[in-house]
Computed example of a mutant assay.
Amino acid sequence: MDDSQITLVQDSFAKVAPIKDAAAQMFYADLFETAPGVKPYFANSDISEQGNKLMATLAVVVNGLRDLDKIVPVAERLAVAHVDYGVKAEDYGKVGASLMRTLEKGLGEGWNDEVAKAWLAAYTTLSGVMVAAAYPEAA
């Protein structure tokens, strides 16, 4: 990721933050519709609370993109913890696709090819680190 991509991700996320509850609902609705196999991971979760955690985690990651040395270890620990919930390496692609569709809907006219490429770079970077930490054989 280059500096301009980081700026695009951070600026676009700042536009999503005011609608974080609606964005989280859109994300989980999309995820459960397009990847129903992940729904059991959330069987014992309050989805509203889970949405709050998702948006808080995204905020930390987005704000930390200029200092990956600090957020990578946190992302790695999070990924390893998710293995206990049954999350598989291939689920990261499904989550990423739902995130992109949610951002596209949430940002409306603020979503364009440049913003999409920046988010894809950010997600690919972090999900790659997470998959490598939790599933070294799949990395």
Rank of each mutant, 00 (worst) to 15 (best):
S98I: 11
N52V: 11
A14I: 10
V115D: 01
V74P: 05
W111S: 04
S12E: 06
D11F: 03
A89I: 11
D11H: 08
G93E: 01
V131Y: 10
M26E: 12
S48A: 14
V83H: 11
G96E: 03
D113K: 14
A17D: 11
F32D: 09
P73Q: 01
F13Y: 04
L65C: 00
F42Q: 06
Y135K: 09
A121H: 12
K88V: 00
E49F: 13
R101G: 01
T7N: 12
V38S: 04
N63E: 13
G106E: 00
A29S: 13
G106H: 04
V131G: 06
H82R: 00
K88G: 07
K117L: 11
K94L: 15
D67G: 03
D69M: 04
Y123C: 03
M130G: 07
E76L: 01
L107G: 07
A138L: 00
M55A: 03
G51E: 05
V80C: 04
S98Q: 04
A35F: 14
L126D: 09
Q25P: 00
G110H: 12
P40H: 02
S12F: 06
K70P: 07
M100L: 15
L68C: 07
E76S: 11
A43D: 13
E114K: 15
L58T: 01
V60D: 01
A118R: 00
N52I: 10
A23D: 10
W119Q: 06
K117C: 06
A116C: 03
E109Y: 01
L103A: 00
A118L: 06
P73G: 00
T34I: 06
G106L: 08
V61I: 15
D67L: 04
E90M: 12
I47R: 03
A75W: 00
G86C: 07
L120D: 14
A118Y: 04
I71G: 09
L126Y: 01
Q10M: 11
Y123P: 03
N52G: 12
D21Y: 13
A24M: 07
M1C: 08
S127Q: 02
K88H: 08
L120N: 15
Y85M: 13
D11S: 12
A118V: 10
P36W: 08
A59D: 15
K88F: 05
G108H: 08
Y85K: 14
L120W: 14
Y28W: 03
M55P: 00
G64F: 02
D113F: 09
